[in-house]
Design a protein around this nucleic acid. Structure first.
Lengths: 225, 225
DNA sequence: CAAGTATTCAATTGATTACTTAAATAGTCC
DNA sequence: GGACTATTTAAGTAATCAATTGAATACTTG
């Protein structure tokens, strides 16, 4: 075998390491979850409906492909995406899949069809409308994910607190809800609830990492008044 | 199992179809080759050092993931990338792998180390220098790949004709050679040969699809004088 | 140091995968 | 129609993979 061939084989073998990481549906889901912020193994197992041991194994694969990193914090191992480039890459994968695989469009359409339609997001325009007081942007993810990173000016009301905290929302303002991304159903559930209670509510189907990937600013930590 | 869970599972299963396509090194190589232009199965088998039957099977996988399309031309089946988005995606994969996997950088460095260093490309600047007559951009790929798509103003001299056609090149001009991409060695071989003959020669390690992905213009067909 | 907890590891299972060889299709050209 | 060609399919094999189970590791807290 020629040295050239050997070189090519080893180069493409490296590329395929990343490919292999994305070859298992659950691993892609784990990457999507980690795009919301750092998580322990147990939390990831819970969120992805995997056993803890199995989650640990998938994370090992991702770690060996350098897509995630682990930080030992005492008893816990906290995993996070190795790099913002990784979440951008997963976004690229998702857009390619949506463009090329009609089945994916069908699946998402079938699930959300009866509930709402989503409009393409224009970030700067949305922020202007927030500043003018026309719109409330609502982050319905768990609060810690909001703290990790959120759309500027968004309010945090986790989905499971929404019913109890409806009073905090003004009925005069349109509400735009978002959650983890297009395969997360929390924002859609929120919109359903809000509409039932008389609000004008819409959904953004993109998550914070998509927002960031579009080059729009995100806020970390709490909202400074 | 909840309908939510079922939805997520089927959505991520679709994403993983693309992932699985990239899980075999040879399939990534095939995509890279197809980024140079349409190819028959036999040609791809030759270029990727696979058996014809095996190549056909890999192509079937890629076709089922909608990454490539096939057009039957009489006796031949001609494969091509389904979409420019696909080659952009492979480029993204490559950049991610280079950023995250030190092994890949090592492998490429080890192979090219003794031969040349590559400078980052500034397309517009390169084209200006071509227009001023300071530089010749040399496309050393097979002529049909040049015809499919090439860097504007580039001259086509396939690597295996280069030795015989050195007379066509002016010794007063710097030569910048390119080929299929960073894992293709033709440009490096060309530079080695040219330097031995007294030329000032450099290499671009990106291919035409990377050039296009950067938003720079490419030329299809022959160069119009 | 003992009990408890979060995570990883090891061994096993059944399923999938890449590749080979050989046969089957489907088209071309005399 | 028969020989030839390019490609696909089928069958078989060895290797790899995802998931399960149960044990092992490593850290914390009393």
């Amino acid at each position: 075998m020629s040295p050239q061939r050997r070189f090519k084989d080893s180069a493409y073998e490296q590329l395929a390491r990343i490919g292999k990481s994305l070859a298992a549906p659950k691993r892609v889901e784990l990457l999507d979850l980690l795009a919301q912020g750092p998580r322990t193994v147990e939390a990831l197992a819970e969120l992805s409906a995997l056993s803890v041991a199995n989650t640990s194994q998938h994370l090992k694969v991702l770690r060996e492909a350098s897509l995630v990193s682990r930080e030992k914090q005492g008893l816990y191992g906290v995993y996070r995406l190795a790099d913002a480039q990784v979440s951008r890459f997963v976004g690229t994968l998702r857009r390619l899949a949506h463009a090329r695989l009609p089945e994916l469009a069908e699946v998402t359409h079938a699930y959300f069809e009866t509930r709402d339609t989503i409009d393409p997001v224009d970030g700067p325009e949305l922020l202007r409308r927030v500043r003018r007081g026309e719109v409330t942007v609502l982050d319905v993810r768990p609060h810690d994910e909001y703290l990790h990173e959120h759309i500027p000016g968004a309010r945090s009301i986790p989905l499971d607190e929404l019913r109890a905290r409806l009073g905090e929302l003004s009925e005069c303002q349109e509400i735009v809800a978002y959650c983890r991304g297009p395969y997360c159903v929390m924002a859609a559930d929120a919109v359903t609830l809000l509409r039932k209670r008389g609000f004008v509510a819409h959904r953004i189907d993109e998550g914070v990492s998509d927002w960031r990937a579009r080059g729009w600013r995100v806020t970390q930590g709490a909202e400074s008044a």
